[in-house]
Design a binder for these strands. Structure first.
Lengths: 144, 144
DNA sequence: CTTGATGCAAATTGTTTGCACCGAA
DNA sequence: TTCGGTGCAAACAATTTGCATCAAG
């Protein structure tokens, strides 16, 4: 999986493809886990100078609006982001409590039930969050 | 629905039933929507003096640990809490994007699929978040 | 070139800590 | 009476703003 998919999405939405934006995508691809703004900053400043916190915050929010990143609450109740592996396709995520790794889940919790729920509550469902949490296969093996 | 259920849960867990804790529960029952710490503080300080922010934070986290409140990310990416209407029973929530109201959803997204997903990913699923978001019936009527 | 992207400093806001005092059980 | 609960001040951390400069397209 390369960064090209995300870069083309950004390009289509009129964003400029700057080295920092590319680096953020590469970082999420490499780390494969949820990252808080400070995590992103700490990793990026190792390779990129200068770098400011506002830039990190701005990039993360833009990516979130572009559908590339999903905001999630971390265990420490800190705003974090998960990379959306297939931004075009509907899917959900499994987050490991031990290593924070994010994995795709094809199963959709609401499949087929949306209309039923809408009728029962009289509401209109626009989005849904289906997030699984536990211990991933690697951490289970390592008994972490 | 009264506050008694929550108070008995807290009592069973060894918490003291103070006026402030009661007031927090009453507030969530009245407001029936997600509230950030600052929201709770602003409402409570109208009726309770003195009151400090640390107290609000401590109560919210305690209630979260006790299973009475669920931490959620608000639209503004701010840590907020939703009152768990039936702390003993497994269920999920619908959050209105317009008025922030929280409603119970009996349907469980993972029902029956947990084992399948665990086998596929090789992971152990401990918890899951299934949160529906959209516009509630009242807001639909009022075309808000 | 043009306009969006970024750095920087500073302000603002959110959250936690330490400790003395208070009050529910 | 005894701890857990709370206020307060202060520290700490997260996030945003304003503006001058930079660079992708």
């Amino acid at each position: 999986m390369s960064a090209d998919l995300y870069l083309s999405i950004l390009k289509n939405k009129g964003y400029k493809l700057t080295p920092k934006r590319k680096a953020v995508i590469e970082l999420f691809l490499q780390e494969n886990r949820i990252l808080a703004p400070r995590d992103v900053y700490r990793q990026l400043e190792k390779q990129i100078h200068p770098l400011g916190f506002p830039t990190v915050y701005r990039i993360l929010e833009e990516f979130s609006l572009a559908g590339i990143l999903i905001p999630v609450l971390s265990d420490e109740r800190l705003l974090s982001y998960a990379l959306c592996r297939r931004p075009q396709e509907h899917h959900h995520h499994f987050i490991c409590h031990s290593c924070q790794r994010v994995e795709d889940v094809d199963y959709c919790g609401i499949a087929g039930a949306q209309e039923t729920i809408e009728k029962k509550l009289g509401c209109r469902i626009d989005t849904h969050l289906f997030q699984l949490e536990g211990i991933c296969s690697d951490c289970l093996k390592n008994k972490r």
